[in-house]
Design a protein around this nucleic acid. Structure first.
Lengths: 237, 237
DNA sequence: ATTTTTACTTTGAATAGTCAAAATAGCAAG
DNA sequence: CTTGCTATTTTGACTATTCAAAGTAAAAAT
């Protein structure tokens, strides 16, 4: 008799571990490779010693590689798990907005708690009910059930060409107030804007909106708004 | 300057504590008052020593009264918290059935995990989306947001009058196989049946269903099916 | 090169929740 | 009363996660 084959995603991680994985995944995306204990610690809101010991545990569990005084990096297994957590998070976010009508500025927060409690069974239902969406309300792509993630590289309002209409594709900053501002100014994903000018020295980006007139953004804010070249609408090309 | 007034339900309990409260609430309903450490322990699947120490913690937190060698009993505060947990559980169950189309035989299980992760904000939305329901898919009444619960005392298939049509009102046993059986035999809440006879010595209850003919149930199963006298349908009174 | 800084690791301790196993209380029989 | 049984309580230990604070290595600065 052969052993029962257990699904790949059967690895059970505590929600603490899930959060570390998620964070590590982000950081190693952003930072290119090894994540330092200092970064990890401050991102997780713990003291550095805690990050060190968690890094070791993850390594022991085969979810990460840890080199003292150098950093951690997820293994393939760790990355898969991270992607599953991210999938849960983003699907839940979209679900909360679409089905429960919550404001997009709060769903990140809510999903943070729910992502650890949603079973595969429930997740599949949400996925189906939402008609297998590919992005969450902030424009963040949703990993597939198999842990595959396609992140198109995009320009932002801070570095896209001037004078050409752009569609807001993704908002990187999940801060509540920021999102509320973005929404109130009509800059949610899907909105169309043109960057009129940039004064880098002053750190300001001047936008031209479709029917709302001008708006100035700080450079940091502009960099958090990813865009895609707008499809020329009928009668405009 | 006066202190900010914090909402009553602000007490934060770990999910472990929430589970103990829920369990305690049930047991002291069923058993009349004090709950013994043995009962609590076996209901929670822990050793008696663990129950003792948790009982003490609950007492320290003001959620229960604990008398050594006698038992625990929830305080008013503990009962309120328990009712909030039960509200979350039951609302989530109904949501899973109605919105996510999960089978009622599995929602108890799922709600067990979600009930600790659903915020008030999310819960209110579910409540509204479900149009403020008063019972979950098993017929269990849903406590109000203020922690009030109305449990009509009901007869069961094991003790209701013979020969009179009854409507299934509530199924007390949440066991997956049992629920699947109940459903497949057309005995879900809302169904109408008549108890034809009871042979107590043999522990058997014979039912007459609307258009499905006879069915025999064990006494334990019958006792788990609560009923209400059926409203005489038009043309039958 | 030697010092200083910064980042990291280690160590010791705390909390929540748990178990195993030893100690004990209360009661039931004799 | 004394023995025994059962339910309960205690004690000691263990895991996961965390912090504070002391120790250390590598990099930066002089």
């Amino acid at each position: 008799m052969r052993k029962l084959r257990v699904p790949a995603a059967a690895a059970l991680a505590s929600s603490t571990v899930e959060n570390y994985l998620k964070q590590l995944y982000r950081q190693q995306r952003a930072g290119g490779g090894m994540v330092g204990m200092g970064q990890l610690a401050s991102a997780m809101g713990v003291v550095p010693g805690t990050a060190t010991s968690m890094a070791k545990s993850l390594a022991e569990a085969g979810l990460a590689r840890y080199t003292p005084r150098n950093g951690v990096r997820l293994t393939a297994a760790g990355e898969q798990l991270a992607l599953h957590v991210i999938r849960r998070h983003r699907l839940v976010e979209l679900f909360l907005v679409k089905v429960l009508q919550l404001d997009w500025s709060v769903v990140d927060e809510e999903a943070e708690r729910l992502e650890h409690a949603v079973s595969d069974r429930v997740l599949e239902r949400m996925d189906a009910l939402l008609d297998f969406p590919t992005a969450d309300p902030h424009g963040d792509p949703i990993p597939s059930a198999h842990g595959r993630l396609h992140e198109p590289r995009r320009l932002s309002l801070a570095n896209c060409p001037l004078g050409r209409p752009q569609t807001i594709a993704r908002v990187l900053n999940q801060d509540r107030d920021f999102l509320q501002f973005v929404e109130s100014e009509g800059l949610a994903p899907g909105a169309e804007v043109t960057v009129a000018s940039r004064i880098v020295a002053a750190g300001a980006v001047k936008l031209q909106r479709r029917r709302r007139g001008e708006l100035s953004l700080g450079l940091a804010a502009a960099a958090a708004m990813l865009v895609a070249p707008a499809k020329p609408a009928r009668g405009e090309g």
